[in-house]
C-alpha cells in the first residue's frame, strides 16, 4: 500500500485558480477588443499584438534569465497586462514605443517588485503613464474611427491630417480655454449615443463603453470582481461632475459626457479592479473608488491634462496599503450589541 498523505484541513479546494481569474478578465476584454478592431482596423491589431507578445516575452525573459526563477507566463497575467496596455494606447503608436511601454510595464511595474502579487501599482498603467510623459506627441495622436482603419504602415502627413483628430475631452478642454460654452462645443462632438458605442477618437480599447459594460457583466457573473470598485468610481465621477454641471452648465460638461469619454469605463472596470493594486475590504474598495473618481474629475476639470483616469488610479494605488491598514472588513459580532441578561 502506498503511504497515506497527512495534511491540515481543509482537504478539498474550490478549484479556483489564478489562471481562471486572469483568463476570465481576458475574456471580458474581448468584446471591447472586437470593437477596437472594428473601428481602428490594422492599427488596433498591430498595437494589441505587439503589446501582448512583448509583455509575455519580457516576463519570460526576466524570469528565466534575470531572476532565474520558474517562469509563470502561463498564468495569463502578462497577457492581461499586455492587453490593458494596448487598450490604453492610440492605435497609430509606433511599434518601438509599444515595446518600450511593455518593458516598463512588466520590468519596472511588475517584476522589479517581485512579480505577480507584489506590485503596488497597476503595471499596465505604469507603462502607459511612462509613455504619456516620455512621448507626449505620439501618445496624443488620436486616429478617427473607421477613417484610420487601413492606415498604419503608410502614415504620410496627408493621411495623418485626414484620419486623426482630438478626443472629445481634449476638444472640450481646448474649447473652454478658448471661451466657448459647453453646449457650443458639444455641438461639434459626437452624440452620447455614438460615444456609447465608441464612435470617437481615443485609445484603442477605451472608446466603446457599451462593450466594456458587457465585460463588466461577465466579470460580475463569474464572480471575478465585486461591484464595489466600478460602481464607486463611475458613481463618484457622475455625482461630482453632476454637481459642477448644475452649478455652471456653461463651463462644466454634463456627467454623462464625463463617464462616456476617455478611460473612465476601461479604468473603472478593468484597471482600478486589478486585484493586486486594489484594497481588500469592501469598505476600502469603495473609498478607493471614490478617491479615483474625485481625482479624475479634479485633473479633468482643473488640471492641465484633458484626461486623468490613469493618474488617479496610480495615485490611489499608492494609498492602498494605508487603506488596508486602517479599514478592516466588518467582523462577525462587531456591531451587534449583546442582549441584556
Amino acid at each position: 500500500m502506498n503511504t497515506l498523505t497527512v495534511s491540515p484541513s481543509p482537504h478539498v479546494h474550490g478549484g479556483d485558480s489564478v489562471k481562471k481569474n486572469m483568463y476570465g478578465v481576458v475574456i471580458a476584454l474581448l468584446p471591447a477588443l472586437a470593437a477596437s478592431l472594428y473601428y481602428f482596423g490594422i492599427g488596433a491589431l498591430v498595437v494589441t499584438l505587439t503589446s501582448v507578445v512583448s509583455c509575455v516575452l519580457f516576463e519570460w525573459l526576466i524570469q528565466k534569465y534575470l531572476l532565474r526563477v520558474p517562469t509563470t507566463v502561463s498564468d495569463g497575467s502578462a497577457i492581461l497586462t499586455g492587453l490593458l496596455l494596448a487598450f490604453n494606447m492610440p492605435t497609430y503608436l509606433p511599434i518601438w514605443i509599444i515595446i518600450i511601454g511593455s518593458l516598463v510595464a512588466i520590468g519596472i511595474g511588475k517584476m522589479s517588485f517581485g512579480g505577480l502579487g507584489n506590485n503596488p501599482f497597476n503595471p499596465a498603467l505604469v507603462g502607459r503613464v511612462f509613455l504619456l510623459i516620455s512621448f507626449p506627441v505620439q501618445m496624443t495622436l488620436w486616429p478617427k474611427p473607421f477613417e484610420s482603419r487601413f492606415s498604419y504602415f503608410n502614415l504620410t502627413p496627408d493621411i495623418l491630417d485626414a484620419t486623426t483628430g482630438a478626443t472629445p475631452l481634449a476638444a472640450m478642454k481646448e474649447g473652454i480655454a478658448n471661451g466657448e460654452t459647453v453646449s457650443q462645443i458639444m455641438d461639434k462632438l459626437p452624440s452620447f449615443n455614438e460615444m456609447f458605442f465608441g464612435l470617437m477618437g481615443g485609445s484603442a480599447g477605451e472608446v466603446a463603453a457599451g462593450m466594456l459594460l458587457i465585460g463588466l457583466v461577465y466579470l460580475l457573473l463569474k464572480k471575478i470582481i465585486t461591484w464595489h470598485i466600478p460602481v464607486s468610481v463611475i458613481g463618484s465621477i457622475f455625482i461630482f461632475t453632476g454637481i459642477l454641471h448644475v452649478v455652471d452648465p456653461l463651463v462644466y460638461a454634463s456627467p454623462v459626457f464625463h463617464i462616456l469619454t476617455g478611460g473612465v469605463m476601461l479604468g473603472a472596470i478593468f484597471m482600478a479592479t486589478d486585484y493586486v493594486s486594489s484594497p481588500m475590504s469592501n469598505k476600502g474598495m469603495i473609498l478607493y473608488g471614490v478617491g479615483i473618481g474625485v481625482i479624475t474629475v479634479l485633473i479633468r476639470v482643473f488640471g492641465s491634462y484633458p484626461e486623468g483616469v490613469s493618474f488617479a488610479i496610480l495615485i490611489m494605488n499608492g494609498f492602498v496599503p494605508l487603506i488596508d491598514r486602517y479599514i478592516k472588513p466588518k467582523r462577525f459580532g462587531e456591531s451587534v450589541k449583546p442582549l441584556k441578561a
Binding site: D16, N21, T72, G114, G117, Y275, S278
Partner: peptide, 9 residues
Amino acid sequence: VQNCIRCSK
C-alpha cells in the same frame, strides 16, 4: 502554492 494576488476572495 502561488503568490498571493490580493484578490480578496
